[in-house]
Nucleic acid binder design. Structure first.
Length: 313
DNA sequence: AATTGGCTCAACCGCGCTCCA
DNA sequence: GTGGAGCGCGGTTGAGCCAAT
């Protein structure tokens, strides 16, 4: 049995070497392969084969397992269904909210989104989006449309503006990733216009108070259960002086951003950052956005947050 | 009871990227 | 530099299920 497998592996190696020189071998897709739903027997064979040989060599796996399936089909079956890490339960409201926020940030990059949701596959998320969440596309594009909705009033009883914080946090988390790309660091002009706007919002008095925990933990938890706090300051940080990033603001002025490694307090998604340098406390600065930027709703959010911060806790 | 329409989700298809000879 | 192999990803399809008519 083992001898046979060794011979097969050797044959596989020989085929690989030969194919390098003789062009593409007949793809298994073109052979007679079984399509359609997988039977429990096939699942069993695939799982046993992967447990024995590991996954990664998808091309050779169908032959190894003796399955009349394409390597793509085998991979898909494992990745989307048989992998033991997969969470096959229904999506929680929190997961749905996260998918919506991440879709807003990343677009239809389902694999990227799935990487933020342990146990969920890109296919699951894609299906969730197409079947449940797509109808909210307009709201996704224009979050201020959430203002006043019954759902938001129920979920954000302390002010509908708070619905924006998870969204803003998600944007920041994503946008701050951009300068970490060496290409982008060396060419900040490639940064998206919105990037600077979100930085300034986060860098504002309001953002500062938000970070410092003026918005108390209890309220934060109601504003977004995605953001977990460990201390009264709301966010626990560790400074990494090695990560000093540059970005240009709308005037071309360079700001230095010190990226901090954040203790997430239970959330592995919402990283947070604090800005070092010229902290502009004027809320008006936030509103200095072109009319066609699509960010006008933030003006209302800023007003709401300002009023909110003055409310007794 | 039969039909229809909508919904869900597993699976397929094809494109594009990366690696390597 | 070029082209093939291998793989991952996103879009799409279609079978099965279920509720409404």
């Amino acid at each position: 049995m083992e001898m046979e497998e060794e011979e097969e592996e050797e044959e596989e190696m020989m085929m690989k070497k030969t194919n390098r020189k003789m062009g593409r071998s007949p793809c298994c897709d073109k052979e007679v392969v079984k399509k359609g739903a997988w039977s429990p027997e096939e699942d069993n064979i695939l799982v046993k084969c992967i447990q024995k040989n590991g996954h990664g060599k998808w091309r050779s796996l169908p032959k190894l397992a003796g399955l009349p399936r394409s390597h793509k089909s085998c991979r898909l079956r494992w990745v989307n269904y048989l992998c033991p890490n997969i969470n096959r339960g229904p999506f929680s409201p929190e997961e749905k909210r996260l998918v919506v926020e991440l879709q807003r940030v990343h677009g239809n990059r389902w694999a990227k989104i799935a990487s933020h949701l342990p146990g969920r596959t890109d296919n699951d998320i894609k299906n969730l989006w197409n079947t449940h969440l797509k109808k909210h596309t307009e709201v996704k594009k224009e979050p201020w449309l959430l203002f006043g909705s019954t759902e938001v009033k129920q979920e954000y009883p302390f002010g509908h503006h708070t619905v924006l914080w998870p969204w803003i946090s998600a944007r920041l988390e994503s946008e701050f990733m951009l300068p970490m790309d060496p290409v982008l660091v060396s060419s900040s002009s490639k940064l998206k216009p919105e990037y600077d706007y979100f930085l300034r919002l986060w860098n504002s008095e309001i953002g500062e108070k938000f970070r410092e925990g003026v918005v108390s933990q209890s309220r934060l938890s109601q504003a977004s259960s995605s953001i977990k706090d460990e201390s009264t300051s709301g966010i626990s940080m560790h400074i990494d002086p090695g990560k000093v990033l540059n970005s240009a603001d709308s005037t071309g002025k360079q700001e230095h951003l010190i990226c901090k490694d954040i203790q997430l307090g239970g959330s592995d998604y919402f990283n947070s950052y604090e800005l070092d340098g010229s902290v502009d406390t004027k809320t008006q600065l936030l509103l200095d956005v072109p009319d066609d930027s699509g960010m006008d709703f933030l003006e209302e959010a800023c007003d709401d947050v300002s009023m909110y911060l003055q409310e007794p806790i």
